[in-house]
Simulated assay, not measured.
Amino acid sequence: MSIGNSPEDERPFEDVSEEARPSIGRALKRARIDAGLTVDDVSSATRVRIAIVHAIEADDFAPCGGDVYARGHIRTLAKAVHLDPAPLLAQYDAEHGGRPAPTPAAPLFEAERIRPERRGPNWTAAMVAAIVAVVGFVGFTLFSGGDEGGAGTVADGSVPSTSEPASPTPKSKKTADPKPEPSDSAIAAAPQDKVTVQVRAADGRSWISAKDHNGRMLFDGFLKQGDSKVFQDSSKVHLVLGDAGAIDLYVNGKKIEDDFQPGSVERLTYTKGDPEAG
């Protein structure tokens, strides 16, 4: 008879906490299935490409293009499947060496680039040129009429005036009036039948993508610190912010006060009725 602990008590303690915790991809996939969603459903709701959703659920984060964007995708997918993203982000940081610094967004969104922004005709310049031509013609006509009147007076025997004919000052005044440069006040006076969005890189450099309600690309590129862009559409503007924490956002003349984190990727859509509050 042995005295002391039984053989079962003498077995070494086995910590199964790590083994019991599923991987990030497995947890996201399980939550998606429990929510009754397909990969297509999640991709449509989050605008994350299907191939990247499949890769993340297989714990392959290379297609994300960097740790900053992998964290952003994990947060977005977790919210879509009703999962708390904080534990998953902590698990990702522990497995990949901590939270990284923001990296350029170009490798991630290279496939989304469709074509450069197409500029329409400069109707303002055409209208100014037409006004100048009309004013010039009217001035020339008036000036010529004055000369003919003077010639008639000399023929009748009167003494012609020696003073110089008046110069067509209305023409010079109209052509010299510069067109005012657009300013931020134009945002506050944005038409109510359109949606107007201003994006300003206030705290650093950020990649920006903007599309109209038909999915046509309005802008795709980087904004340096201090730069800004204004987008306008009849019903809807879709935005992707590569580093949302560096951006100040104004919609229909009102500043959006969302607490965007540095390095986070945000996909946003605004309509002419936004913001509904604040």
Rank of each mutant, 00 (worst) to 15 (best):
S2W: 09
I3E: 13
G4T: 05
N5A: 11
N5C: 03
S6E: 07
P7K: 05
P7N: 10
E8T: 12
E8Y: 09
E10Y: 02
P12R: 10
P12V: 08
P12T: 11
E14I: 15
E14T: 14
E14P: 01
V16D: 11
V16S: 10
E18R: 13
E18L: 12
E19V: 14
A20V: 14
A20G: 07
P22I: 05
S23R: 03
S23C: 09
I24V: 14
G25K: 06
R26P: 00
R26Y: 04
A27M: 13
A27H: 04
A27E: 13
R30H: 09
A31D: 12
R32G: 02
R32C: 03
I33N: 04
I33H: 07
I33M: 08
I33Q: 14
D34A: 15
D34I: 11
G36N: 12
L37M: 15
L37P: 04
T38Q: 06
T38L: 09
D40P: 00
D41R: 04
D41Y: 08
D41H: 13
V42R: 13
V42Q: 13
V42W: 13
S43W: 03
S43I: 02
S43Y: 04
A45R: 13
A45K: 11
A45C: 03
A45N: 12
T46Y: 03
R47I: 00
R47K: 09
V48P: 01
V48Q: 09
R49S: 15
R49L: 10
I50T: 07
A51E: 15
I52M: 11
I52A: 10
V53H: 00
A55V: 15
I56W: 04
E57W: 02
E57D: 13
E57C: 02
A58N: 14
A58K: 09
D59K: 06
D59S: 11
D60K: 01
F61W: 10
F61M: 11
A62Y: 08
C64G: 06
G65V: 02
G66E: 08
G66C: 08
G66V: 05
G66R: 02
D67P: 08
V68K: 10
V68F: 11
V68C: 12
V68Q: 15
V68L: 10
Y69G: 00
A70M: 08
A70L: 05
A70F: 07
G72I: 07
I74N: 13
I74H: 14
T76E: 05
T76R: 04
A78E: 04
A78P: 02
A78G: 07
A78C: 00
